[in-house]
């Protein structure tokens, strides 16, 4: 256990320690994707980079939004906006479990004092046309991460397989810092001249977004946004690969994927507004999947996705 680290003192310190740990392990430490997503997996650095043969290794924080989880800032452990820490390595290294456990030690979890368990949890994302096998990782009975070996993304077999780690940062931090109410945990150092709790930073935003998500967001507008994103995604992908202006081959998988992300988030907002019935729900999920699968197909036609003129179909 190397030099035993001091326990972290704040939410941000946990994030910074994860960043340094994974940077030291060779990951490219990326920044959050600049769009609203429901989970870190939606970041193109995971979804799209898991496709094709090119090796990849990245770690990042991803602010994520689940409008239906909004509780006006009153819940000790639920927020409509929360953070995930995401690690993706392709091909999955043979010591990924050990690397992961090392990251827990880095944030102050002593493996000799806690009960860490890998409990079966198969992951499936119908909107991403993706699935994988792995576990939820328990620390003393609490789920602190998801650990997944991607088998398919966007309907394509992952070859090689990516290993994905997702940490629910609030829950993990509450446990490590010893708080039952997440709003009370220190966001910055508790001895800072101006100490701020998680609630100081987010409670106001939670209330405002909860009201907007549940009662105010204009559903007609949102429905139109969904259709627009869907149409634009399809229009982008319908363009020919050869750009007439530059004369270069430019397959626009990423801009198209942005539209798919947008459609997915709009769908989540519509869901929170309660205007999607059970049967419609499946249909919407199917429509988003159609978009992500098409984007995955397109990404495989790019150099980053492994396309070369020689292997062109």
């Amino acid at each position: 256990m190397a030099e035993t680290l001091q326990k972290p003192r704040s939410f941000q310190e946990i994030i910074m320690r994860l960043q340094s740990y994974w940077a030291a392990k060779g990951c490219a430490v990326l920044q959050p994707y600049d769009m609203e997503v429901g989970a870190g997996t939606f970041h193109p650095a995971t979804t799209l980079r898991a496709l094709g043969p090119t090796p990849w290794s990245a770690a990042y924080v991803q602010p994520s939004r689940r409008p239906t989880d909004g509780r006006y800032g009153d819940s000790p452990n639920r927020w409509q906006h929360y953070y995930q820490y995401q690690v993706i390595i392709k091909p999955s290294p043979p010591d990924l479990q050990a690397l992961y456990l090392g990251s827990l030690e880095a944030i102050g979890i002593d493996m000799k004092m806690h009960d860490i368990r890998f409990v079966e949890d198969d992951w499936e994302s119908p909107t991403l046309g993706a699935w994988g096998l792995g576990w939820e990782v328990w620390c003393d009975g609490m789920e602190v991460s998801q650990f997944t070996y991607f088998q398919q993304v966007g309907g394509h077999d992952c070859k090689p397989v990516s290993g994905e780690l997702t940490y629910g940062l609030e829950r993990l931090a509450m446990y490590v810092l010893g708080f039952d109410d997440g709003n009370e945990m220190p966001f910055n150092d508790p001895d800072a001249p101006i100490p701020l709790t998680y609630g100081d930073v987010f409670r106001e935003a939670e209330a405002q977004y909860a009201r907007w998500n549940f009662d105010v967001a204009d559903t007609d507008t949102l429905l139109q946004h969904f259709k627009d994103a869907e149409a634009e995604c399809a229009r982008i992908l319908a363009q020919r690969a050869d750009d007439p202006k530059t004369g270069r081959r430019i397959v626009m998988a990423l801009p198209a994927y942005d539209q798919a992300i947008k459609a997915s988030h709009v769908f989540n907002l519509l869901d929170a507004r309660g205007v999607i019935s059970v049967t419609e729900r499946q249909a919407y999920i199917g429509r988003v999947r159609t978009l992500t699968v098409a984007c995955a197909d397109a990404f495989l036609q790019t150099a980053a996705g492994g396309y070369t003129p020689e292997n062109a179909a």
Binding site: M113, H114, D115, R117, M142, Y175
Partner: peptide, 24 residues
């Protein structure tokens, strides 16, 4: 609850953690 490890504090930390999760 059944843990997978013996600890120096006879499982006190583990039990406390499990208890917190259960209470939540």
């Amino acid at each position: 609850t059944v843990a997978n490890i013996e600890t120096a504090d006879q499982g006190a930390t583990i039990l406390a953690g499990n208890g917190r999760v259960l209470s939540a």
